[in-house]
């Protein structure tokens, strides 16, 4: 088996707050293979962004990886110093499209200047070579080449977003972490950006960790995915598996909450309740309060990711992983029948 590109193993990240240790991510595991597009979906505040920050060594001052490991190309990076992150990983290997792309470019620098500065830090490229590469990337993301020397304020929001994507790609990293790369864009722009990201994918060479709360985006553009809720990963698998055969209650309900083009009149499901704030050690399933299939065991112990139906590539963290989907389908058939009578 080849070494995965990025691997999280039983990763736990906690933030120190006035009320104690807040567990943002607990016991999360997933792997991203070389040149694979991997989606990570989940509700707001479920720890998606915290995972990206941990992988880039950019956790807030009060955040810490308290357990588990992150490996990049087989090397453990969770204890890297800021200097090691700078010299070994950031931008050369792992680049990042931030959530708030609109405010991410330095307003006092021309974009070409910022690119030249990044290139000078990480590579032997001359200023002209760096800017030339940025020009190529501008072309790919659909920005006029000659505008690399513009200041960020001369760009619209969508253009800034694409400039940030160009900056993330111009040093040809092996892994791109895209944290809600298109949240600020309208659907047409969103579509274009993903068109570019898919084009880049054709060339191979690059893997992506796509963080989003838009599950359909992941179904459309990724190979494999994980679903998160309140700090725990509920289910991992290929997008086809998750789409066709979701086994975790959260995934089932989440899918139900998204409109389906084929059944435009279907009533959307609602996941009742609010995500919990997990303080201290998490020794329970964080979905238990909202789960219609919960059993007492869910309160007593945190479920770990175990293969469902013997499929090693489809781990689910639920004690009732083998039964829930069937129960759900049986119930819905009754609903469909009674619904048909009206």
């Amino acid at each position: 088996m080849t070494t995965p590109l990025l691997e999280a193993e039983n990763l736990t990240v906690q933030y120190e707050t006035a009320n104690g240790m807040l567990t943002a991510v607990s016991d999360a595991s997933f792997t991203i293979n070389t040149s694979e597009y991997f989606g990570l979906v989940g509700e707001s505040g479920c720890g998606k962004s915290t995972i990206t920050k941990a992988a880039l060594g950019g956790l807030d001052d009060n955040g810490r990886i308290t357990a588990g490991k992150i490996r990049y190309k087989g090397e453990e990076i969770q204890d890297y110093t800021e200097k090691e992150f700078n010299e070994k990983l950031r931008w050369k290997e792992i680049s990042w499209i931030p959530q708030g792309s609109m405010n991410s470019l330095d307003p006092l620098q021309r974009i070409s200047e910022q690119a030249a500065m990044i290139a000078r830090v990480h590579t032997d490229l001359s200023k002209d070579e760096a800017v030339e590469r940025l020009r190529e990337m501008f072309d790919i993301v659909g920005l006029p080449k000659e505008r690399v020397t513009d200041y960020p304020h001369q760009f619209s929001g969508g253009m800034q977003q694409r400039a940030v994507i160009a900056l993330a790609l111009f040093l040809r990293p092996s892994l791109l972490i895209a944290d809600e790369p298109t949240t600020a864009l309208d659907v047409i722009m969103q579509d274009q950006v993903f068109k570019y990201l898919n084009e880049i994918k054709q060339d191979g060479e690059i893997g992506m960790l796509l963080i989003t709360h838009d599950i359909s985006l992941v179904f459309e553009s990724c190979d494999r995915m994980s679903v998160m809720h309140a700090g725990q990963i509920s289910e991992t698998g290929t997008v086809e598996t998750i789409y066709e055969e979701p086994h975790h209650p959260y995934t089932i309900l989440l899918k139900e909450a998204f409109p389906d083009l084929r059944y435009p009149d279907r009533e959307l499901g609602i996941i009742e309740g609010n995500p919990p704030q997990n303080m201290g050690e998490v020794d329970y399933c964080t979905f238990v309060d909202r789960c219609p299939w919960a059993v007492p065991e869910c309160q007593e112990q945190a479920p770990s990711l175990e293969p469902v139906g013997g499929d090693e590539d489809h781990p689910v963290s639920c004690f009732r992983r083998e039964e829930v989907l069937e129960e759900y389908r049986a119930e819905n058939e009754t609903v469909a029948q009674t619904g048909g009578d009206q």
């Binding site: 950031r90 050369k92 900056l167």
Partner: peptide, 8 residues
């Protein structure tokens, strides 16, 4: 923060 993440 972006500057920091670009590895400056």
């Amino acid at each position: 923060y972006y500057h920091r993440m670009t590895g400056l």
